[in-house]
């Protein structure tokens, strides 16, 4: 006995990048890339997506593996959150990614969902993306025409929209390895402590000037407060190079309000999101100091 629904679309399991390029070229816009499938399958179930061909790239070797090369970690796009959490390299050189990974979905989701998929979907609520942005990571996009690198913060252009061109695949991330004085946090407010979509997330990365309460190279990324994951430039400016004192943290953290443009939705109001963006930044910094 087989399942009872008629064929709605095709499926191709690709084992090389070339397979993927061919499939995408053959089917054009209605080809749909699938990696972990945690978002895509939900879309298929609700018929919000109606592709003609699913192109599964999870077995393409180039998309796997975590290795250190020079000053970067190269993380394959099909790396799952669980793999990120188990990686000693990530733990040593980009612990911020693990802080975020453990807050993605549930164990079951972390075993399926991939970092590449999280970026490619271009959801403003993605929890995997803000640490990439805060760490200044680049993403490697590959097509038949070649390879280009884009800063993760420049990848998404709107909800579900990105710079990804037709025929282009997210292959790997290049994450600068952290310096001994680099510190950071990923702080998420969700309706629950696991298995929750962010209402707001704030990720901070900065290099502490030894023996001070001063940070340089501050990068802050926020989730669920704008059409894409965004850098908080004003907040970075306000918090860089100055001695951070508990008494002034709140005032400095309020600079983030100029960086975000949240909306009301079913998970939270814009007002609460603004309030909490400040609060998460302030309490995260307090914990660092």
């Amino acid at each position: 006995m087989t399942a009872q629904t008629p064929t709605r679309f095709g499926y191709l399991r690709c084992s090389s990048l070339e397979d993927v390029f061919k499939a995408v070229a053959d089917h054009g816009e209605r080809a749909r890339i699938v990696a972990g499938g945690t978002d895509l399958v939900v879309g298929l179930q609700g018929r919000r997506l109606d592709p003609c061909m699913l192109v599964d790239l999870v077995r393409v070797p180039e998309l796997h593996g975590i290795e250190k090369a020079d000053d970067c970690l190269r993380i394959g796009a099909a790396t799952t959150y669980s793999q990120l959490l188990e990686s000693d390299l990530v733990s040593a050189h980009a612990p911020l990614l693990q802080q975020a990974a453990v807050e993605v979905g549930s164990v079951q989701i972390r075993n399926l969902g991939t970092l590449g998929g999280n970026l490619a979907n271009a959801s403003p609520a993605a929890d995997g993306v803000p640490p990439l942005v805060a760490l200044g990571a680049e993403v490697e996009l590959v097509s038949r025409n070649g390879t280009r690198r884009v800063l993760c913060e420049n990848f998404a252009t709107g909800p579900g929209q990105s710079v990804l061109e037709a025929g282009e695949i997210v292959v790997a991330f290049l994450v600068p390895v952290c310096h001994e004085h680099d510190e950071g946090f990923f702080s998420k407010l969700g309706p629950r402590d696991q298995q929750a979509i962010s209402i707001v997330s704030v990720t901070f990365s900065g290099r502490r000037v030894a023996g001070t309460r001063r940070y340089e190279s501050v990068r802050i990324a926020c989730g669920s407060v704008a059409p894409t994951v965004v850098r908080a430039f004003r907040a970075e400016e306000a918090l860089s190079g100055i001695e951070l004192e508990p008494e002034t943290l709140f005032r400095s953290s309020r600079a983030i309000l100029a960086d975000i443009s949240p909306i009301d939705d079913v998970r939270g109001s814009a007002e609460y999101r603004r309030d909490q963006a400040v609060g998460l930044l302030r309490s995260g910094l307090e914990a660092l100091l």
Binding site: P191, R192, D193, Q194, Q195, A196, I197, V266, R267
Partner: peptide, 16 residues
């Protein structure tokens, strides 16, 4: 109703 699944209608999980 807008909260018609487990991601929007928030039940206590093992964490809570």
């Amino acid at each position: 109703i807008l909260t018609h699944n487990f991601s929007t209608y928030i039940l206590p999980s093992a964490m809570e």
